[in-house]
């Protein structure tokens, strides 16, 4: 567990984190998980746990609303499960394979909407190549890590974050539901953000 802040940390990260070339010990583990799931699809759950935040973060950053993000995410994992036996380990990580499915699913979804409801203002990017730049991959990895860190917050902070940002509830309503004062909820919100920020900074995942 490292708590030091190294300014050069970003530059030291391999481009795209675990999304590029296979080789590390972590990826050897992942490879074992993939092969296990290829033999026994019931073991797909472990891969889902490992990659859910990454896939969701990617899709949420590219679609307009939460309902669409959920539809497309669901679609991607169903497709991945259906095509799992076709995945071959040729230097491309499983995460990169999932994100390629996700990128295609996002474009398909946008095309479906554009076909159904053609608009003079449809941006050209709907049909553009979804290729991921290293900076985008880093952003996705960071978002996914933040989402996982929320799950590790102290319970009261975690509840406030979910009710505020996911359920979009007002401070007053959250206070009523949790039986605390509005000031206490604002404090919990602040503590949660500070803790998440500190953990993101320290690289402690």
């Amino acid at each position: 567990m490292k708590a030091t802040q190294r300014p050069g940390r970003k530059a030291a990260l391999p481009e795209g984190g675990p999304l590029q070339k296979a080789g590390s010990a972590e990826q050897a583990d992942e490879r074992a998980l993939v092969e296990a799931a290829q033999t026994d699809p019931a073991k797909f759950g472990a891969l889902y746990e490992m990659h859910f935040e990454r896939v969701y973060a990617f899709i949420a950053s590219r679609v307009r609303d939460r309902a669409t993000a959920e539809d497309v995410t669901s679609d991607v994992f169903h497709k991945a499960l259906a095509n799992l036996t076709r995945f071959e380990w040729r230097g491309v990580s499983f995460a990169a394979w999932l994100l390629r499915i996700a990128a295609n699913a996002v474009v398909d979804q946008a095309k479906r909407v554009a076909r159904e409801f053609p608009s003079p203002e449809d941006p050209a990017e709907l049909v553009a190549d979804p290729g991921l730049r290293p900076s985008e991959l880093r952003a996705i990895e960071n978002h996914a890590r933040l989402f996982r860190l929320v799950g590790q917050l102290p319970e009261a902070q975690r509840q406030v974050v979910h009710q505020r940002f996911v359920d979009q509830r007002s401070i007053r309503e959250i206070a009523g539901r949790l039986g605390k004062t509005e000031g206490a909820i604002k404090q919990l919100q602040l503590r949660a953000l500070e803790r998440l920020r500190a953990q993101m900074e320290s690289g402690h995942a």
Binding site: A42, F44, Y48, A57, A69, F77, N142, L146, H162
Partner: peptide, 20 residues
């Protein structure tokens, strides 16, 4: 800003059981 895209826990769980 990033937390605005935080996934719903109930969705995460429902999709997993769906896949299982």
């Amino acid at each position: 800003q990033v937390l605005r895209d935080l996934p719903r826990e109930s969705f995460r769980i429902a999709l997993k059981s769906d896949l299982q």
